[in-house]
Simulated assay, not measured.
Amino acid sequence: MYLSIPQLTSALSLRDLSDPAQGEHAMQTLLTDVVNALTGTWTIPATVHRTTPLVATADNYDRLGYAPDDVTRDARYSRHASPTVMLRSHTSAGIPAVLDSLASVQDAYDQLHVLPGLVYRRDAVDRTHVGAPHQVDLWRIKARGLLTDGDLHNLAGAVVEAVLPGARWRAVPANHSYTSHGMQIDVETPAGWLELAECGLVGARILRGSGLDARRWSGLALGMGLDRALMLRKGIDDIRLLRSPDPRIASQMLDLEPWRPVSLMPAVRRDLSILCGPDADEETLGDVAREALGGDAEVLESLVIRTRTPVEQLPSAAYLRLQAQQGQENLLVRLTLQALDRTLTDAEANALRDHVYVALHEGPVLELTG
């Protein structure tokens, strides 16, 4: 399950839209607005940390309090480079190093630490999910002064106002391995209530793990998906638009003005009947499909499992035709293909369909279009 050198190189070469050093993007403006709102509210300085996405597995999980059997550790959903190193699955993986750096501080301290960047997951393919989304962790760390639930609500309110001025929001109780009094922050949109961020008071054991006395130190922690935040702010319903090279689209990704729809190319659908193991799901299949398509992955708008049937329940003729193995499942998968800048020909759509089919199908009989 370890990443190959080409896979690792591809992941590390992906442009980070939140980083000004990699080109201008509206995501940076939104992040700046959020940071300025918080430093202005609290009158404290901020430090931005941009570190390599390759992190110690212990920093990504153990030092943030994740249990050894937590589902998030499952190798199917994370990207490991070795037994002890992985591509971070959340920007919180940079927090242990930040806290370690404060162990020698003896004076009063109050600062906002900002950790933005790409995170890497095996995720479903649809209009709101990608395998490498952007996140930001916003942690206020303070010595000699207790931060409370009231400060946590002020943090949530300031972030919501910076992202969606005037929006209604609500706090829903949530559990996190590295916080107490955790909350999920939902905002009201025309489509209903949507999650924007999660936050909580920094857990005492996380502080103690970096040598910080929890009687002297306290903190607030908030994590937010920057892709979703920007999509909500601009009124965008397709996450692929954030990276589109189409000049009509890319020019609109330089500011926070509302999205002005452009005429998109028609979508093409292809259905696949494949054999897979019983643990296959849209997240793992989506990741394999992206890998198979390589540079054409942006053409894949969505991958949806429409039906799944244990092979033992298939008609005998179908079972024999597929040469299925006991324990496998027959999945009907629908691909939606849509290039943002051109119309796909039937031949192109079929070729893409076949690439994905070969990558997903775990059987000896191939049913290709050409």
Rank of each mutant, 00 (worst) to 15 (best):
residue 259 W to V: 08
residue 254 L to R: 15
residue 164 L to F: 09
residue 45 P to I: 08
residue 91 T to A: 05
residue 65 G to Q: 06
residue 147 L to T: 09
residue 234 K to Q: 13
residue 216 R to V: 15
residue 338 Q to G: 02
residue 253 M to S: 05
residue 26 A to E: 06
residue 21 A to E: 14
residue 350 N to E: 13
residue 299 V to E: 06
residue 222 L to S: 09
residue 248 R to A: 15
residue 347 A to L: 12
residue 68 P to L: 09
residue 272 L to E: 02
residue 33 D to P: 00
residue 84 T to W: 04
residue 35 V to P: 01
residue 252 Q to R: 10
residue 130 V to H: 04
residue 37 A to S: 13
residue 303 L to M: 13
residue 178 Y to L: 05
residue 339 A to S: 14
residue 323 Q to I: 06
residue 113 H to S: 09
residue 127 R to Y: 01
residue 248 R to D: 15
residue 155 L to H: 00
residue 250 A to H: 09
residue 336 T to W: 04
residue 148 T to M: 06
residue 253 M to Q: 09
residue 90 H to E: 08
residue 53 P to L: 10
residue 104 S to R: 12
residue 337 L to G: 03
residue 156 A to E: 07
residue 268 V to A: 11
residue 198 E to N: 15
residue 188 E to H: 11
residue 83 P to D: 07
residue 305 I to T: 12
residue 329 E to M: 13
residue 366 L to T: 07
residue 297 A to P: 01
residue 47 T to G: 06
residue 68 P to W: 02
residue 159 V to C: 04
residue 1 M to S: 15
residue 132 A to V: 11
residue 8 L to R: 09
residue 154 N to H: 14
residue 162 A to W: 01
residue 214 A to H: 12
residue 48 V to G: 00
residue 248 R to I: 09
residue 32 T to R: 15
residue 237 D to C: 06
residue 179 T to D: 05
residue 327 G to I: 06
residue 145 G to Y: 10
